[in-house]
Design a protein around this nucleic acid. Structure first.
Lengths: 196, 196
DNA sequence: GTCTATAAGGTGATAGAC
DNA sequence: GTCTATCACCTTATAGAC
């Protein structure tokens, strides 16, 4: 917060991204100025341009980092062979990841229209890859009759929208714990796909 | 589109709101200027202030109109006594309303943080009233054992998030018709709450 | 590594002419 | 009913001093 003159190259870059993430999540990308970010970091506006090409690159890098972290974290999850257990693994993973990173998630959903077409395409490709992970689990369960689905694609979008929606109402310290919310959502998801 | 000098008081006001709605839905409230709106309406920027107090009022009025229209439309739906039929009525209503008004829905979800605290409170009250309509149906079904719910409040939020999510992927002329999507979502919702 | 200073232009909003 | 002109300020981004 305090402004100091001197050498901080190793911490100023990360701090710019961290501060930008908080401000953008709170006020929106278009409503946050480079000066505001600089002020909160404790440098002058021009200094930001030593670490970021321009404002668009700043937004893109935040979203790219978020989605790459999400995909890498899912890759690291051991997916059970049983479709029901695999779906349980995905549900828990998705909720826990989203509980932990409300700012990143919010930005990734709200600021898509502020990306250039080129950057938008790259982010969308990563999002589709993540959706494909869930769709593959559902398709496998449908093929083995573990699941009874009206439509794998729509069910994928329905489950992801439902789970990601926790961000709009869940707050730590509220009526339910994260674990309780997780149990409730898992029960809802399991019923949605349950075979006859 | 074409600029004309003369009297247009009855159409300029509505046109400002209509143009603002399209531009804000596409680019976001903070990214759209009064000058842009004026240019698309075909007047000068100052003219907007004859019809709208300021930029904040313009946003608030769009969201207020949307939510009041939503609540009034739901009030007009005859709700069956049977909880399953009532839930079906809500599901169909919600999807159809959201299919018809993608711009309003998008703004109502994305621009909440650009409202002043006072205006935010008023919009939130309306949103909660709408959620309460679904929660009442779920609670009634749970009481009569027609539904078996893990938690009425979380189930309410889950269903609304899932249904509203159609806006992120559904496009007219795609693989599925509105009616097909409606049937798929109804099957998913019904299973989520189904009694044992 | 960060600063100051600045370019070039956009912003919301208002006063007064017509 | 709308325009022109304007105020006071904010914007992104860069050049060159230290």
């Amino acid at each position: 917060m305090a402004r100091k003159s001197g050498s901080h190259s190793e911490i100023t870059g990360p701090r710019i991204r961290s501060v930008a993430q908080s401000l953008i999540a709170r006020h929106g990308f278009a409503a946050v100025s480079m000066r505001q970010i600089a002020a909160e970091v404790g440098v002058r506006a021009g200094t930001i341009y030593l670490y970021v090409a321009d404002k668009q690159a700043l937004l893109y890098e935040l979203m790219e980092t978020h989605l790459d972290t999400l995909l890498a974290a899912w890759e690291a999850v051991p997916v059970p062979e049983d479709p029901t257990e695999a779906l349980h693994a995905f549900t828990s993973f998705h909720l826990r990841f989203h509980f932990e990173r409300p700012e990143e998630v919010f930005i990734a959903y709200m600021e898509l229209r502020n990306l250039t077409p080129e950057n938008f395409a790259k982010i969308e490709a990563r999002r589709r890859a993540y959706e494909a992970a869930l769709e593959a689990i559902l398709a496998r369960g449908a093929a083995s009759s573990a699941f009874d689905l009206p439509d794998p694609r729509v069910t994928t979008m329905a489950i992801i929208a439902m789970l990601t929606g926790v961000g709009t109402w869940y707050r730590d310290g509220g009526r339910l714990s994260r674990g309780e919310v997780e149990a409730i959502y898992w029960r809802l998801v399991r019923r949605m796909v349950q075979g006859a």
